[in-house]
Simulated assay, not measured.
Amino acid sequence: MTDVLLSPANFWFSIALIAVFFVFILELISTVFGVSLVGLGDDFAEVDGEGFLNTSLANWLNINKVPFLIFLIVLLTFFGLSGLIINGVTVSLFNVSLPASASVPLALIVALLVTARAASIISRFLPSVESSAVNSDDFIGSVAEITIGRASRGNPAEAKFTDHYSQPHFVLVEPFEEEELFAQGERVILVKKNQHSWLATRYQ
Rank of each mutant, 00 (worst) to 15 (best):
L28H: 15
I29W: 14
S30L: 12
V32R: 14
F33A: 04
F33D: 00
G34C: 02
G34N: 03
G34Q: 01
G34E: 01
L37Q: 10
V38C: 00
V38R: 00
G39T: 05
G41Q: 07
G41C: 06
D43N: 13
D48A: 12
E50Q: 10
G51I: 11
N54D: 15
N54Y: 13
A58N: 09
N59D: 11
N59E: 10
W60L: 13
N62R: 15
I63D: 03
N64I: 01
K65T: 01
K65N: 03
K65W: 00
V66L: 10
L69C: 06
L69Q: 06
I70R: 00
I70V: 08
L72M: 12
L72S: 08
L75F: 15
L76T: 09
T77N: 08
F78D: 03
G80N: 05
S82T: 11
L84D: 00
L84K: 01
G88Q: 08
G88R: 09
V89D: 03
T90C: 02
V91S: 12
S92D: 14
S92G: 12
S92R: 11
L93D: 05
N95W: 02
S97D: 02
S97W: 05
L98N: 02
P99F: 00
P99N: 00
A102K: 10
A102F: 13
S103D: 02
S103L: 07
P105M: 10
P105G: 10
L106G: 06
A107M: 08
A107C: 08
A107S: 15
L108R: 04
L108Q: 02
V110P: 11
A111L: 06
A111C: 05
L112P: 06
L113Q: 10
L113D: 04
A116H: 01
A118W: 10
A118F: 14
I122N: 05
I122Q: 02
I122C: 02
S123F: 11
S123V: 07
F125K: 12
L126V: 09
V129H: 13
S131V: 01
S131Y: 00
S131F: 00
S132Q: 12
A133Y: 13
N135W: 02
D137V: 09
D138H: 05
F139T: 05
I140Q: 08
G141L: 04
S142A: 06
V143S: 12
A144I: 09
I146W: 14
T147I: 14
G149C: 05
G149S: 05
S152H: 13
S152T: 15
R153L: 15
G154H: 08
G154N: 09
G154R: 09
N155G: 10
N155R: 15
N155Y: 15
A157T: 12
F161L: 03
D163P: 03
D163L: 06
H164M: 12
S166Y: 12
Q167M: 13
P168D: 09
P168N: 07
F170I: 11
V171Q: 01
V171H: 01
V173H: 05
